[in-house]
C-alpha cells in the first residue's frame, strides 16, 4: 500500500486530495446552510470555460479557471440579489453557457476528449508540482478565511435579515461566500473534477448532519469526512484504475449511508433524543 507513495504523481495527487477534502466541505457547510447546495455545481460549469481559455491561450488552466469561476460566482450572487424574479432562468443560462463554451473551446484548442475528461472528472496523474503549489496556496487562503469569518458567515447564512440589523454587511459576505466557493472549485478541479466538485461540498455535510447536533460539530465532522473521502478515493482510484472524481464522491456517499444507518439504529433503540422538552 505504501509503495504508491514511491510514485511522485501519487504524492502530488494525495497532497491535492488533502487540500481538496478539507476545503470543499469547509465552505460547502455554509452553502448548505444557506440552501445554495447547487451553487458549486453552477460555478463548476462556468470554470470549465476558464480552463478552455487557458488551454487555448497557453496559460495555466488553474489560473484562468479561478478567474472565470470567480467572475461566474459574482454574476450568480448579483443575479440572486438584484434579479429575484428571473434569477432562476438567468442562472440556468449561465450554467449551460459555461459548459457549452468550455467544451467547444477545448475542441478548438485541439485538445483531446481525454483532456476534457480529466477536467470534468479529475485525474490523479495530471497534478503537476506547479499545480500543487497553486492548489496549496489557494486552499490555505480559503481555509483561513472561512475559519476566521465563521461567526459572520454563520449569522448571514442562518438569518440574513437579523444579520443585517446587527450591522453585518450582508451583501459583502454573500459575495465572499460565492468567491470562496469559486476558488475552492478551482482547488478541487484536479482531484474531483468540475462536474463532481459540488458533491464534495455537499455530501460530507449531509453525512455529518446525520449524527452531529450543532453547527460546529457538523462543520468539523464534514471537513473530516471530506478529507477521508478524498484520500480513500484517490488511493482506490489508483488501486482499481478508475477516475478519482467518481471514486471520491462514491466514498463520500458511502460515509453518508453508514452514518444514516447508524442514526437509524440509534433512533430505533431510543438513544436519539428527539422529543421537544416542554418547559414552562
Amino acid at each position: 500500500m505504501l509503495e504508491l507513495l514511491d510514485y511522485p504523481f501519487m504524492r502530488y495527487a494525495l497532497a491535492a486530495a488533502v487540500v481538496t477534502g478539507l476545503t470543499a466541505p469547509a465552505i460547502g457547510t455554509f452553502l448548505v446552510q444557506r440552501r445554495l447546495a447547487l451553487l458549486g455545481d453552477g460555478i463548476g460549469h462556468v470554470a470549465l470555460t476558464g480552463v478552455a481559455l487557458g488551454l487555448l491561450t497557453g496559460t495555466a488552466p488553474v489560473l484562468t479557471a479561478v478567474i472565470a469561476a470567480t467572475l461566474g460566482a459574482l454574476a450568480i450572487e448579483l443575479m440572486r440579489t438584484y434579479a429575484r424574479t428571473s434569477g432562476d432562468v438567468a442562472l440556468a443560462m449561465l450554467f449551460y453557457g459555461g459548459i457549452a463554451a468550455g467544451v467547444m473551446l477545448i475542441n478548438l484548442a485541439g485538445d483531446s476528449a481525454a483532456t476534457l475528461n480529466s477536467y470534468l472528472f479529475g485525474s490523479i496523474v495530471t497534478v503537476s508540482p506547479d499545480d500543487l503549489t497553486v492548489i496549496a496556496i489557494l486552499g490555505g487562503i480559503v481555509l483561513v478565511v472561512v475559519l476566521a469569518a465563521t461567526p459572520q458567515l454563520f449569522a448571514v447564512c442562518q438569518d440574513e435579515e437579523h444579520a443585517r440589523v446587527s450591522g453585518v454587511p450582508v451583501r459583502w459576505y454573500g459575495i465572499l461566500i460565492a468567491v470562496l466557493a469559486a476558488v475552492t472549485i478551482t482547488v478541487a478541479m484536479r482531484t474531483v473534477g468540475l462536474l463532481l466538485v459540488s458533491a464534495l461540498m455537499v455530501v460530507p455535510v449531509a453525512a455529518a448532519q446525520q449524527v452531529a447536533r450543532s453547527f460546529r460539530a457538523t462543520h468539523l465532522l464534514a471537513m473530516g469526512l471530506g478529507l477521508l473521502a478524498a484520500i480513500v478515493g484517490v488511493i482506490a482510484s489508483f488501486e482499481i484504475d478508475t477516475q478519482p472524481g467518481p471514486t471520491i464522491v462514491l466514498t463520500a456517499m458511502l460515509c453518508f449511508a453508514v452514518l444514516a444507518a447508524a442514526r437509524g439504529v440509534m433512533t430505533l433503540t431510543g438513544r436519539w433524543r428527539r422529543r421537544p422538552l416542554e418547559l414552562g
Binding site: Q158, D159, H219
Partner: peptide, 25 residues
C-alpha cells in the same frame, strides 16, 4: 431584532446556544 418566525429552517442544524451567540455579533 426578532424577525417573524419562518418555517424555512437553515440547511444545517444549529443549537439554541449557537443561534443566541450569533446575536452578539
Amino acid at each position: 431584532y426578532v424577525p417573524q418566525r419562518s418555517s424555512n429552517a437553515a440547511g444545517v442544524p444549529a443549537t439554541v446556544r449557537e443561534v443566541v451567540l450569533s446575536g452578539r455579533l
